[in-house]
Nucleic acid binder design. Structure first.
Lengths: 107, 107
DNA sequence: CCATTTCATAAGTCATGACTTATGAATGAG
DNA sequence: CTCATTCATAAGTCATGACTTATGAAATGG
């Protein structure tokens, strides 16, 4: 099915530093490269490279404003991963029941 | 939270060959290394190495029977990944509503 | 026993990936 | 214009990872 997309997403999110960038964008909204670099624990080029990888995977969107580049999370890019999960949840009903309960609590 | 476990799971499942082994075990149940090797597209040692990686990640269990090693999927090992997903579903309600509906259909 | 089957491990190769420093392009400020 | 800021890209290093062939251990069958 979406094997290639799943592979790309898994590989992109498997790096802790890169995943932390994505998680921070998810939590804090739109951020510039400079702001993301402060607290990332790696150099600015490293952050730019992680953002490029996230962009290729469809997990992030860029908005240029003058010399600043603003990035924001694109959670819709997780769709293939969620589909993969839903497919294999057939073999794991109990755990998904918990998720269902969790989702109801969020309403 | 379970960052380390999430990283390990993502990294383990990011390889298409290894993920295919896990998916096949999920679909077909318990299989021996020899059976898994037929159709894996790689050598028997490669399959053994993938199984070892899946075992370390908690995605697979081994049962020795004479000289045969039977492996089966351990879907409970996906728990940290599911938790990660549930956490970031806060920013993505529509999509998870679909999953919720899908889960209800399975009841 | 002896040979065969089944699997795991060792060792080496090759590609990929995550990081660094260096640098340049583009914009903004004075 | 000049200089600083902001970011991306280039180039090189180093570790990791996926695969191979070779081999050995353990169990089975004749």
């Amino acid at each position: 099915m979406h094997e290639i997309a799943v592979t790309l997403l898994m590989r992109t999110l498997s790096d802790p530093t890169r995943r932390a960038v994505f998680e921070r964008l998810s939590r804090e909204g739109e951020l510039t490269v400079g702001v993301l670099t402060r607290g990332a624990g790696v150099s600015q080029p490293a952050v730019s490279q992680h953002l490029a990888a996230l962009k290729i995977a469809g997990l992030v969107r860029e908005r240029r404003e003058g010399r600043r580049a603003h990035y924001r999370a694109e959670p819709a890019g997780l769709a293939p991963l969620l589909d993969w999960f839903a497919h294999y949840s057939t073999f794991w009903p109990e755990r998904f029941d918990q998720l269902e309960a969790l989702l109801k609590d969020m309403d």
